[in-house]
């Protein structure tokens, strides 16, 4: 009996699959479940940023760039197409200004979307 059960295990596997719901998602109509800690699109909190540049220093993909003239005059730029979503900038930031959300980044056909100015501070 065990012999037969083992011999026909693939047949029982495919007929069990008939009654089970499919495991794939009907993309893009189906719902995509992402866990809470998923490293998705990069978010930025302008008020928290003090322009220290720590996020730029360790960015492995050169996706962050800072043009800094002085403490009060700097420009922080993000290049989403280069970003590796590694989370290093989030780890480095001491003020919680830059962090990942758990949302996927939608593809874009807008060339202007390839350069995102996160913060531009000018001398008052």
């Amino acid at each position: 009996m065990t012999y037969f059960r083992k011999r026909f295990s693939i047949i029982s596997a495919i007929f069990e699959a008939l009654i089970k719901p499919p495991e794939t998602v009907d993309y893009p109509k189906g719902a995509l479940m992402l866990p809470e800690g998923f490293r998705g699109a990069l978010l930025f909190d302008t008020d928290q940023c003090i322009g220290c540049g720590l996020c730029v220093r360790n960015c492995p993909a050169d996706a962050l760039h800072m043009e800094k003239k002085s403490r009060d005059e700097y420009k922080l730029i993000h290049y989403p197409a280069r970003c590796a979503y590694c989370g290093q900038c989030e780890d480095n930031c001491r003020h919680g200004a830059i962090y990942h959300s758990n949302q996927l980044v939608k593809p874009t056909d807008n060339p202007a979307g390839l350069i995102v100015v996160l913060k531009e501070k000018k001398e008052a």
Partner: peptide, 9 residues
């Protein structure tokens, strides 16, 4: 075949 393989099809 998709249903046997637990896909949507």
């Amino acid at each position: 075949l998709a249903l046997f393989q637990r896909r949507v099809g």
